[in-house]
Amino acid sequence: MNILVCISQVPDTTTKVQVASDGISIDKTGVKFILNPYDEFALEEGLQLREKFGGTVTALTVGGDTCKEILRTALAMGADKAILIKDEHKNDSYSVAFQISEIAKTMNPDLLVLGRQSIDYDSFAMAPMLAELLGLPSISMVSSLTIDGNLIKAERDIEGGKEVLESSLPCVISAQKGLNNPRYPKLPDIMKAKSKPIEEIPSLSTHARISTMAMQLPISKRIGKISGDSESEISDIVLALHEEAKVI
Protein backbone atom coordinates (compact mmCIF):
# COMPACT_ATOMS: atom_id res chain seq x y z
CA MET A 1 0.00 0.00 0.00
CA ASN A 2 1.43 3.33 -1.02
CA ILE A 3 0.46 6.04 1.39
CA LEU A 4 0.85 9.79 1.04
CA VAL A 5 0.69 11.70 4.31
CA CYS A 6 0.23 15.46 3.91
CA ILE A 7 1.50 17.47 6.86
CA SER A 8 1.88 21.11 7.78
CA GLN A 9 3.95 23.32 10.01
CA VAL A 10 2.05 25.54 12.44
CA PRO A 11 2.87 27.92 15.28
CA ASP A 12 3.10 26.20 18.66
CA THR A 13 -0.25 26.16 20.47
CA THR A 14 1.01 28.46 23.21
CA THR A 15 2.11 31.18 20.74
CA LYS A 16 1.08 34.69 21.68
CA VAL A 17 -0.38 35.99 18.43
CA GLN A 18 0.58 39.49 17.20
CA VAL A 19 -0.40 40.96 13.84
CA ALA A 20 2.55 41.51 11.45
CA SER A 21 3.23 44.87 9.79
CA ASP A 22 1.48 43.68 6.59
CA GLY A 23 -1.78 43.70 8.59
CA ILE A 24 -2.93 40.35 7.20
CA SER A 25 -0.74 37.73 8.86
CA ILE A 26 0.88 36.95 12.21
CA ASP A 27 4.23 38.33 13.28
CA LYS A 28 6.56 35.32 13.13
CA THR A 29 9.24 36.91 15.32
CA GLY A 30 10.07 34.54 18.15
CA VAL A 31 7.32 32.10 17.20
CA LYS A 32 8.16 28.43 17.65
CA PHE A 33 6.89 26.27 14.78
CA ILE A 34 5.85 22.66 15.24
CA LEU A 35 4.36 19.74 13.33
CA ASN A 36 0.59 20.26 13.30
CA PRO A 37 -0.66 18.07 16.21
CA TYR A 38 -3.31 16.26 14.11
CA ASP A 39 -0.68 15.35 11.52
CA GLU A 40 1.01 13.15 14.14
CA PHE A 41 -2.12 10.96 14.06
CA ALA A 42 -2.00 11.00 10.24
CA LEU A 43 1.66 9.94 10.14
CA GLU A 44 1.14 7.24 12.77
CA GLU A 45 -1.81 5.80 10.83
CA GLY A 46 0.24 5.74 7.64
CA LEU A 47 3.11 3.97 9.39
CA GLN A 48 0.85 1.39 11.06
CA LEU A 49 -0.84 0.59 7.74
CA ARG A 50 2.55 0.17 6.07
CA GLU A 51 3.63 -2.16 8.89
CA LYS A 52 0.49 -4.22 8.28
CA PHE A 53 0.25 -4.21 4.49
CA GLY A 54 3.75 -3.29 3.29
CA GLY A 55 4.42 -0.45 0.84
CA THR A 56 5.75 3.03 1.43
CA VAL A 57 4.89 6.13 3.37
CA THR A 58 5.70 9.47 1.75
CA ALA A 59 5.42 12.63 3.81
CA LEU A 60 4.68 15.82 1.89
CA THR A 61 4.31 19.43 2.87
CA VAL A 62 3.88 22.78 1.16
CA GLY A 63 5.92 25.67 2.52
CA GLY A 64 9.30 27.32 2.87
CA ASP A 65 12.69 25.88 3.86
CA THR A 66 11.78 25.93 7.55
CA CYS A 67 9.21 23.21 6.84
CA LYS A 68 12.06 20.73 6.31
CA GLU A 69 12.05 20.38 10.07
CA ILE A 70 8.65 18.67 10.16
CA LEU A 71 9.63 16.48 7.19
CA ARG A 72 12.66 15.37 9.25
CA THR A 73 10.29 14.54 12.11
CA ALA A 74 8.23 12.44 9.68
CA LEU A 75 11.37 10.66 8.47
CA ALA A 76 12.46 10.07 12.09
CA MET A 77 9.05 8.55 12.86
CA GLY A 78 9.59 6.16 9.94
CA ALA A 79 8.43 7.76 6.69
CA ASP A 80 10.31 6.39 3.65
CA LYS A 81 10.39 9.57 1.64
CA ALA A 82 9.87 13.30 2.13
CA ILE A 83 8.75 15.92 -0.39
CA LEU A 84 8.70 19.69 0.02
CA ILE A 85 6.68 21.76 -2.44
CA LYS A 86 8.45 25.09 -2.09
CA ASP A 87 5.82 27.75 -1.69
CA GLU A 88 6.48 30.41 0.93
CA HIS A 89 3.12 32.07 0.40
CA LYS A 90 0.55 29.31 0.74
CA ASN A 91 -2.13 31.72 -0.48
CA ASP A 92 -5.26 29.80 0.43
CA SER A 93 -6.48 26.25 1.03
CA TYR A 94 -7.28 25.84 -2.64
CA SER A 95 -3.77 26.72 -3.83
CA VAL A 96 -2.25 24.27 -1.34
CA ALA A 97 -4.73 21.52 -2.26
CA PHE A 98 -4.15 22.13 -5.97
CA GLN A 99 -0.37 21.83 -5.67
CA ILE A 100 -0.61 18.66 -3.58
CA SER A 101 -3.11 17.15 -6.03
CA GLU A 102 -0.79 17.73 -8.98
CA ILE A 103 2.06 15.89 -7.22
CA ALA A 104 -0.28 13.16 -5.94
CA LYS A 105 -1.42 12.47 -9.51
CA THR A 106 2.15 11.48 -10.41
CA MET A 107 2.36 9.09 -7.44
CA ASN A 108 -1.01 7.32 -7.55
CA PRO A 109 -1.18 6.64 -3.80
CA ASP A 110 -3.69 4.07 -2.50
CA LEU A 111 -4.42 6.21 0.51
CA LEU A 112 -3.88 9.85 1.42
CA VAL A 113 -3.90 10.67 5.12
CA LEU A 114 -4.09 14.18 6.60
CA GLY A 115 -4.80 15.71 9.99
CA ARG A 116 -8.41 16.78 10.42
CA GLN A 117 -7.38 20.46 10.57
CA SER A 118 -4.22 22.49 10.81
CA ILE A 119 -4.31 24.54 13.97
CA ASP A 120 -3.39 27.83 12.30
CA TYR A 121 -6.32 28.49 9.96
CA ASP A 122 -8.56 25.69 11.30
CA SER A 123 -10.32 25.31 7.96
CA PHE A 124 -10.92 21.51 7.92
CA ALA A 125 -10.79 21.94 4.13
CA MET A 126 -7.76 20.08 2.86
CA ALA A 127 -8.95 16.44 2.78
CA PRO A 128 -12.25 17.01 0.92
CA MET A 129 -10.65 19.58 -1.44
CA LEU A 130 -7.79 17.26 -2.29
CA ALA A 131 -10.15 14.32 -2.74
CA GLU A 132 -12.37 16.31 -5.06
CA LEU A 133 -9.39 17.48 -7.14
CA LEU A 134 -8.29 13.84 -7.44
CA GLY A 135 -11.80 12.48 -8.05
CA LEU A 136 -11.58 10.34 -4.90
CA PRO A 137 -13.90 9.63 -1.96
CA SER A 138 -12.93 11.06 1.41
CA ILE A 139 -13.80 10.64 5.08
CA SER A 140 -13.07 13.50 7.47
CA MET A 141 -12.35 13.33 11.22
CA VAL A 142 -11.77 9.57 11.30
CA SER A 143 -11.49 8.09 14.79
CA SER A 144 -11.39 4.42 13.77
CA LEU A 145 -10.25 2.81 10.53
CA THR A 146 -10.10 -0.74 9.16
CA ILE A 147 -8.97 -1.72 5.70
CA ASP A 148 -9.74 -5.13 4.22
CA GLY A 149 -8.62 -5.58 0.62
CA ASN A 150 -9.98 -2.55 -1.14
CA LEU A 151 -12.73 -1.93 1.37
CA ILE A 152 -12.45 0.83 3.96
CA LYS A 153 -14.61 0.96 7.04
CA ALA A 154 -14.30 4.05 9.21
CA GLU A 155 -15.97 5.81 12.08
CA ARG A 156 -16.08 9.55 12.35
CA ASP A 157 -17.33 11.89 15.04
CA ILE A 158 -20.49 13.84 14.34
CA GLU A 159 -22.64 15.99 16.63
CA GLY A 160 -24.23 13.69 19.17
CA GLY A 161 -22.58 10.47 18.04
CA LYS A 162 -20.59 8.70 15.37
CA GLU A 163 -21.12 7.83 11.74
CA VAL A 164 -19.97 4.47 10.39
CA LEU A 165 -18.92 4.75 6.76
CA GLU A 166 -17.78 2.49 3.96
CA SER A 167 -15.65 3.41 1.04
CA SER A 168 -12.96 1.91 -1.15
CA LEU A 169 -9.34 2.55 -2.00
CA PRO A 170 -7.98 4.84 -3.29
CA CYS A 171 -9.36 7.25 -0.71
CA VAL A 172 -8.48 10.35 1.33
CA ILE A 173 -8.98 10.38 5.10
CA SER A 174 -8.38 13.00 7.76
CA ALA A 175 -7.31 11.84 11.20
CA GLN A 176 -8.90 12.70 14.52
CA LYS A 177 -7.54 12.22 18.01
CA GLY A 178 -8.37 8.70 19.17
CA LEU A 179 -7.39 7.06 15.87
CA ASN A 180 -4.06 5.91 17.33
CA ASN A 181 -1.27 6.87 19.71
CA PRO A 182 1.49 8.59 17.76
CA ARG A 183 4.98 7.20 18.39
CA TYR A 184 7.86 9.32 19.59
CA PRO A 185 10.84 9.18 17.24
CA LYS A 186 13.88 7.51 18.81
CA LEU A 187 17.12 9.44 19.13
CA PRO A 188 19.11 7.30 16.63
CA ASP A 189 16.28 7.72 14.10
CA ILE A 190 16.24 11.48 14.68
CA MET A 191 19.99 11.53 13.96
CA LYS A 192 19.60 9.37 10.84
CA ALA A 193 16.74 11.53 9.55
CA LYS A 194 19.07 14.53 9.48
CA SER A 195 21.03 13.12 6.57
CA LYS A 196 18.11 11.68 4.60
CA PRO A 197 17.26 13.45 1.34
CA ILE A 198 14.25 15.73 1.02
CA GLU A 199 12.93 16.07 -2.50
CA GLU A 200 12.21 19.69 -3.36
CA ILE A 201 9.64 20.61 -5.96
CA PRO A 202 9.16 24.19 -7.14
CA SER A 203 5.83 25.86 -6.45
CA LEU A 204 3.17 25.51 -9.13
CA SER A 205 1.57 28.83 -9.79
CA THR A 206 -2.06 29.12 -8.79
CA HIS A 207 -4.49 31.94 -8.29
CA ALA A 208 -5.76 32.28 -4.75
CA ARG A 209 -9.52 32.09 -4.67
CA ILE A 210 -9.84 33.98 -1.41
CA SER A 211 -7.87 36.91 0.03
CA THR A 212 -7.35 38.06 3.57
CA MET A 213 -8.13 41.77 3.73
CA ALA A 214 -7.18 42.32 7.37
CA MET A 215 -6.21 40.49 10.54
CA GLN A 216 -7.12 41.77 13.97
CA LEU A 217 -6.81 40.63 17.54
CA PRO A 218 -10.22 40.00 19.06
CA ILE A 219 -11.40 42.53 21.60
CA SER A 220 -12.44 40.91 24.83
CA LYS A 221 -15.98 41.85 25.75
CA ARG A 222 -16.08 39.83 28.92
CA ILE A 223 -17.85 41.19 31.97
CA GLY A 224 -15.05 39.98 34.25
CA LYS A 225 -17.00 39.89 37.52
CA ILE A 226 -14.85 37.69 39.76
CA SER A 227 -16.03 37.08 43.30
CA GLY A 228 -15.48 34.91 46.36
CA ASP A 229 -17.23 31.72 47.36
CA SER A 230 -19.58 32.85 50.12
CA GLU A 231 -23.22 31.85 49.82
CA SER A 232 -24.33 35.42 49.15
CA GLU A 233 -21.70 35.91 46.44
CA ILE A 234 -22.84 32.67 44.75
CA SER A 235 -26.43 33.96 44.94
CA ASP A 236 -25.33 37.18 43.24
CA ILE A 237 -23.71 35.21 40.41
CA VAL A 238 -26.87 33.14 39.92
CA LEU A 239 -28.92 36.34 39.81
CA ALA A 240 -26.51 37.87 37.28
CA LEU A 241 -26.76 34.78 35.04
CA HIS A 242 -30.53 35.16 35.16
CA GLU A 243 -30.99 38.92 34.91
CA GLU A 244 -27.84 40.33 33.35
CA ALA A 245 -26.68 37.56 30.99
CA LYS A 246 -30.22 36.14 30.66
CA VAL A 247 -28.83 32.68 29.93
CA ILE A 248 -30.88 30.77 32.52
Partner: peptide, 20 residues
Protein backbone atom coordinates in the same frame (compact mmCIF):
# COMPACT_ATOMS: atom_id res chain seq x y z
CA UNK B 1 -19.50 40.65 0.03
CA UNK B 2 -17.17 39.20 2.67
CA UNK B 3 -16.91 37.45 6.02
CA UNK B 4 -15.04 37.43 9.30
CA UNK B 5 -13.63 34.24 10.74
CA UNK B 6 -11.54 33.26 13.76
CA UNK B 7 -8.05 31.89 13.14
CA UNK B 8 -5.24 30.64 15.40
CA UNK B 9 -7.79 29.08 17.76
CA UNK B 10 -9.59 32.39 18.17
CA UNK B 11 -6.44 34.32 19.06
CA UNK B 12 -6.95 36.43 15.93
CA UNK B 13 -9.71 37.07 13.40
CA UNK B 14 -9.51 37.78 9.70
CA UNK B 15 -11.65 39.67 7.23
CA UNK B 16 -11.80 37.53 4.10
CA UNK B 17 -13.04 38.22 0.58
CA UNK B 18 -13.57 35.86 -2.30
CA UNK B 19 -11.90 36.49 -5.69
CA UNK B 20 -14.23 34.26 -7.68
Amino acid sequence: DSAMRPVYAGKAKVHVKSNT
